[in-house]
Amino acid sequence: MILGLGSDLCNIDRIQASLDRFGDRFETRVFTDLERAKAARRPFTKAGTLAKRFAAKEAFSKAVGTGFRAGVFMKDIGVVNAPSGAPTLALTGGAKARLDALVPHGHGARVHLTMTDDHPWAQAFVIIEAVPLDPDANR
């Protein structure tokens, strides 16, 4: 069952302006170390790489229904890659607690994430799905 859906559209030039104005202070406040390392390996598309991740964080906050309040902080939402290479989210702190609170008993959460960019826009969609912990439960 679908628990939440969120989307966000982010202007890459706005992220670049924040990088230019606030530099490391902006990056460390918003992005995880892993996200920052990935962006650093892409110097020509750093702002686009970070903008997609910014949009993913916003989309998740909408999918859980809180925005960035009730203990949900940007840095608690990290974009990572599954072994297949598909993007997904690693959650900590309040973001993980909020997700856990949404999941019905006997279910686990599966977070689906897709991101794209085409300058000057970056976009992300998040779908949160509850899946039965017992695979035979729906038979």
Score class of each variant (00 low, 15 high):
34 L>Y: 06
113 L>D: 05
109 A>P: 00
113 L>C: 11
119 H>S: 13
80 V>G: 01
11 N>Q: 15
21 R>H: 10
15 I>C: 02
37 A>L: 13
67 G>A: 06
84 S>V: 08
77 I>E: 06
23 G>H: 05
109 A>N: 00
113 L>P: 02
19 L>C: 10
121 W>P: 00
33 D>C: 12
99 L>R: 04
49 T>F: 11
87 P>V: 04
61 S>V: 08
82 A>L: 13
70 A>N: 14
5 L>C: 05
71 G>T: 01
92 T>M: 04
50 L>S: 07
9 L>M: 14
89 L>R: 02
8 D>L: 09
14 R>F: 00
49 T>A: 15
41 R>D: 14
119 H>G: 12
112 H>D: 05
33 D>P: 12
73 F>K: 14
6 G>I: 06
115 M>S: 02
30 V>K: 02
67 G>F: 05
106 G>W: 04
104 P>W: 04
78 G>A: 15
116 T>V: 07
76 D>P: 06
125 F>Q: 09
72 V>E: 03
130 A>T: 03
8 D>R: 08
98 R>W: 01
57 K>N: 07
52 K>A: 15
88 T>I: 03
128 I>N: 00
113 L>S: 09
92 T>G: 00
103 V>I: 12
92 T>N: 06
125 F>I: 14
130 A>F: 01
54 F>V: 07
38 K>L: 09
127 I>C: 11
131 V>F: 00
51 A>Y: 00
80 V>D: 02
106 G>L: 06
74 M>Q: 10
131 V>H: 01
65 G>M: 04
7 S>E: 15
91 L>G: 02
49 T>M: 08
62 K>I: 03
28 T>Y: 03
17 A>N: 12
128 I>V: 10
68 F>I: 13
66 T>G: 00
34 L>S: 13
45 T>H: 11
69 R>S: 14
81 N>F: 07
5 L>Y: 03
72 V>M: 07
96 K>M: 09
129 E>M: 04
101 A>P: 02
51 A>G: 00
29 R>K: 15
118 D>N: 12
108 G>F: 02
122 A>V: 10
42 R>P: 03
46 K>P: 01
24 D>E: 15
60 F>V: 12
132 P>S: 05
